[in-house]
């Protein structure tokens, strides 16, 4: 079985955000970066699938050269291969362009059965790249997956649970499939020291637009259909009121104020 895990390098949520304001994008190089939290579940699910069904894992990331760090972490976690899709022309890509580049990379890997992605990134928060990827490839689109029930590699079938509004949907789908996973699907493991040491010496293969056969006019800033026109800091919430007095009095005041909102019936 051939498994792909898509991973993204994102700014650490604790780090100071640095913008290139006129360019409408992030200064990614100037920020502390980590593996997108949701992608850790995607990598772990790929590892679990390999343990249960054999096969090999290729971890793919699109990003600047610095994104090598997240792929090195994948190697430390013992994925078989990594590919960094990097090209100046990819910079400023929107959701469709990003999915197009990843789709090209997945096709180049060839004979892939399952692609795992995280539900969304913690920087752009779009949560649509997995679905767009499935649509471009014409593969099964399995989003919000909270559990893999079974995978039948020979019969080319997968059964998953999707945690959606109001409950859990059990879906059977054809392989190949793009599966985007939620927090809670597994407990991501940490790399061990030997893995880290080994990974630190490995080369990270890179694919540029030409390697992938991607039309540079259709990706990056040139191809993006959405353009950033403004970046702003939302107005702070008005100063709140800290209630004073005995608990009895504070509870009395608070319940009055909340009942006055006419929301509680």
């Amino acid at each position: 079985m051939k498994i792909v895990a898509c991973v993204k390098q994102v700014p650490d949520t604790e780090a100071e955000v640095k913008w290139d304001i006129p360019g409408g994008k992030l200064k990614r190089d100037a920020m502390d970066c980590v593996t997108n939290a949701f992608d850790e579940y995607a990598i772990e699910e790929a590892l679990l699938t390999r343990e249960n069904h054999d096969g090999e894992i290729v971890a793919i990331s699109m990003g600047p050269e610095k994104a090598m760090d997240v792929l090195r972490n994948c190697l430390a976690l013992t994925v078989n291969e990594v590919k960094l899709c990097t090209d100046a022309a990819f910079e400023g890509s929107d959701t469709f362009a990003t999915a197009s580049v990843l789709a090209a990379a997945i096709k180049k890997v060839g004979d892939v059965d399952i692609v795992y992605c995280g539900k969304q990134s913690t920087d752009g928060n779009t949560g649509v790249v997995g679905a767009a990827l499935a649509s471009i490839l014409g593969w099964s689109q399995l989003t919000y997956v909270s559990k893999i029930r079974s995978i039948d590699g020979a019969g080319k079938k997968i059964v998953v649970e999707r945690a959606i509004e109001g409950g859990t949907e059990v879906v059977e789908a054809k392989l190949p499939a793009v599966v985007s996973v939620l927090k809670g699907i597994n407990e991501p493991r940490l790399p061990n020291l030997m893995g880290i040491r080994k990974a630190s010496k490995m080369e990270i293969p890179q694919w540029n637009a030409a390697d992938l056969g991607v039309d540079t006019g259709k990706v990056g800033t040139a191809g993006a259909s959405t353009k950033v026109v403004e970046i702003a800091v939302p107005p702070p919430r008005g100063a709140g009121e800290i209630l004073k007095g005995e608990i009895e009095d504070m509870a009395n005041t608070l319940t009055d104020k909340l009942i006055d909102l006419k929301v509680i019936k």
């Binding site: 409408g24 959405t226 950033v228 800091v233 939302p234």
Partner: peptide
């Protein structure tokens, strides 16, 4: 912490 406004032309 930020809002980003986009247009699609």
């Amino acid at each position: 912490n930020y809002t980003v406004t986009v247009v699609n032309e």
